[in-house]
Design a protein around this nucleic acid. Sequence first.
DNA 1: CGAAAACTCTCCCGCAGGGGGAGGGTGCAC
DNA 2: GTGCACCCTCCCCCTGCGGGAGAGTTTTCG
Lengths: 265, 265
Amino acid sequence: MLAIGEFSRLTHLSVRTLRRYHEAGLLEPAAVDDATGYRYYRADQIPVAQIIHRLRELDVPLPEVRRILRSPDPDARGTLVANHLRRLEAELDRTRAAVASLRRLLQPEPTALEVELRAVPATTVAAIEDDVDHDDVVAWYAGAMAELDAFLGEPAGVPGGLYDNALFEKGRGHVLVYRPAAEPPHRGRVHPVELPAVELAVTTHAGEHDDIDVTYGELGAWVVANALAVAGPVREHYLVGPRDTPDAAAWRTEIGWPVFRVAPH
Amino acid sequence: MLAIGEFSRLTHLSVRTLRRYHEAGLLEPAAVDDATGYRYYRADQIPVAQIIHRLRELDVPLPEVRRILRSPDPDARGTLVANHLRRLEAELDRTRAAVASLRRLLQPEPTALEVELRAVPATTVAAIEDDVDHDDVVAWYAGAMAELDAFLGEPAGVPGGLYDNALFEKGRGHVLVYRPAAEPPHRGRVHPVELPAVELAVTTHAGEHDDIDVTYGELGAWVVANALAVAGPVREHYLVGPRDTPDAAAWRTEIGWPVFRVAPH
DNA sequence: CGAAAACTCTCCCGCAGGGGGAGGGTGCAC
DNA sequence: GTGCACCCTCCCCCTGCGGGAGAGTTTTCG
């Protein structure tokens, strides 16, 4: 039986951290002296400690680590770990996007932003909508658009989306994707929705969506500079996207921010 | 002038976060109403807010963000950002290593560990030593070994290292790298050191060092199972390494843990 | 054998960078 | 002028870890 210090030396985990893992139910010492509270470990707990160490290095939260350790089936473990690795990859994508945005922000192109003020009448469309977490939007969009396409057949007309501001400010919000349709069906999640008439400040974002937030910011600045204020969810129109061409440089996304004129006061 | 909520909508930063950034001196509102405390922003502060947002997505600490924003020269900015990107890459390496270790931990090979108990006499060597942070060890090692090689010429004899336990337990500790030398010189950081005689439990780790901690753990378990206890800094001998062959699979590292026999009590 | 050194215990506070919510004052539109 | 959305400050909570105090235990060594 090993005292905590010795065990710490063998696992490269600090004594403090071992105590925390005990408290969290991740790594129970093989024995605890009732009288003194001293923790004692067995040598065969070393690999367990190392698994925890490695998982923590991958930023797996402690409750998730517990779940992984408690699942005795190696396959189930593998699945949980693989899930987390997928999360890591998603994070890597976010990092890539942040780097792309930064490049554009730190070396701004002096080309003026082209913005069009466009009155859009109320329209009826085939839509799928839901409350979604910000991190899940991309996956949700893919699924929803696939379902829309399945029920509407032959892609025709420009697909679009409405994104509630809460999605960005609070991390969760209402999202709606749509395709124009003369007589929208009502099957599965697909149903007809009447988009209200709005006045949109519209600009076009070119290329991947990595740095689309920068375009959002420029549009926002334009809106304010023109004595307008934003109202309601943003609209995006996917003029050219991955469904049209694999060449990301050719993609075109319209961003439309509903606006109204601010009283000059 | 924009109230904080409007600015929040335009930048996709939460109101709370904007207030924190004000408090931290990252993003001062263009005006603050003395009477009410209301914060007001200008539209041209949107890009600044976005830069902060992106940098935070890259886990740049707030003080570092402040430093980047305060450096008006685009080049200086670029350098600071590039530094952080290098840190991100180092983290990626750590992640890769953790994944490799996990693979081995979760699907353990049943091959028995070969351990040799070896009495090592006191030896005089040419060494470089220092107190080093755990994260800097690899870089420090490269520099130290290069300096050793420069003064000793023709590589001969197996290089090695001593790593204090505190390095792993507290994140910082004493590290010593050495090469055998008949008459060690005393130049630059290089100086003669007499390594004390010890009894080592020795095993050999094959391949990259990604999962070397797993071998450490197995060796530790063996030591305990054989009624021994560890004492003093670990020794590593680089039998075959990157200096010998680029083929990582052929690398061989001896791990030697100083041990002494535990009284049967 | 006894004292000093090394170890271990619990408990409280700190950090980053946020979120949740209470309690109360403002701005604006109808 | 009244209601409602907005804004303010302040406090506590979260995660995962470190520092340190103060007290009790074990080990070691003379």
